[in-house]
Amino acid sequence: MQASHEQSLTNSVVAITGASSGIGEAVAYEAARRGATLILMARSADKLTALAQDVTLLSGAPAYVVPVDVGDRAAIDDAVEQINTLTGRVDILLNAAGFGDFESIVDTDWAVVEKLFKVDVLGLMYFSRKIVSLMMVQGHGHILNVGSMAGKMPTPKSAYYSAAKAAVIQFTNVLRLELKPFGILATSINPGPVATNFFNIADKSGQYLNKVAAFTIDPGTLATKIVNAMGTTKREINAPFIMAVASVLYPLAPRIGDVIAGTFGNQK
């Protein structure tokens, strides 16, 4: 039975990029449990189809599969056309697609840097822009963008990823201000390390999650926080708590913060 404090998403259309794994997949299950109609987006049609079958059983509502590479602007245009045909509206958009790469500034392949910004930043911005146009017609909507604690606090071997996520956070902040007159909300989601396959690509050593186990977030727990925020005026989701506190203190004592980030934060 649904707990009394959980809002229902019945009759709400929730679109999720990066839905085939990680945070996006966890949110898909949680939103389905609350009755949402889902639009599932990622590159892998096979994974999305299997997920759609599972979440439909949970929600009793449709789950549509829209394969898309968010690093490709033309593919985003095609995806939005499909969404228009399938549902004609999006009430909530979660931009969860993205990847990271933990290498030093000079060792990171430049092609990886370009791809990182195309997917994590430009793709997120362009998808938001397209869906916002729909939401303005509707007179309501909510954009939730997955940033990162890396966008708030620097650590070694994350220069490009941190820069990308800082851009996501600031983009979301401006969305919140610009879109308020149109009844559209915007929330940034800034987690620390989440126990997902994100690190299969980002962490070539394979040891990072073990080193930061004390700060690692369960994706299901984070998904509950994200879905609880849908349709609310919550500005940010910052987790875990200790890193959320550190992100507030860092600008107040940046010299001390640099020492901590360069020692205790140097786990990659």
Rank of each mutant, 00 (worst) to 15 (best):
V14H: 00
V14C: 07
A15P: 00
I16T: 01
I16D: 00
T17Q: 05
G18L: 07
S20Y: 00
G22C: 08
V27K: 03
Y29H: 15
A32N: 09
A32F: 03
A32P: 01
A32D: 07
R34V: 09
R34E: 00
G35P: 08
A36W: 00
L38Y: 08
I39Q: 03
L40C: 13
L40G: 13
L40I: 10
A42E: 05
R43F: 03
S44P: 07
T49R: 13
T49Q: 12
L51F: 03
L51S: 09
A52C: 08
A52N: 08
Q53Y: 07
Q53S: 14
D54K: 15
D54N: 15
V55N: 00
T56V: 13
L57S: 15
L58V: 07
G60T: 15
G60F: 11
V65M: 09
V65C: 12
V66H: 12
V66M: 12
V68T: 12
V70N: 02
G71C: 08
D72M: 09
R73E: 13
R73N: 13
R73C: 13
A74H: 12
A75H: 03
I76E: 02
A79Q: 05
A79I: 05
V80M: 05
E81C: 13
E81M: 11
N84Q: 14
L86G: 03
L86K: 08
T87V: 14
G88M: 07
G88I: 13
G88V: 12
D91L: 02
D91R: 00
L93W: 00
L93I: 01
L94G: 02
G98A: 07
G98P: 00
G100S: 11
D101E: 11
F102D: 04
E103A: 14
E103I: 05
E103F: 05
E103P: 02
I105S: 10
V106K: 11
D107R: 09
T108S: 08
T108H: 06
A111S: 15
A111M: 11
K115F: 05
L116N: 06
F117I: 14
F117M: 14
V119D: 07
D120W: 02
V121G: 08
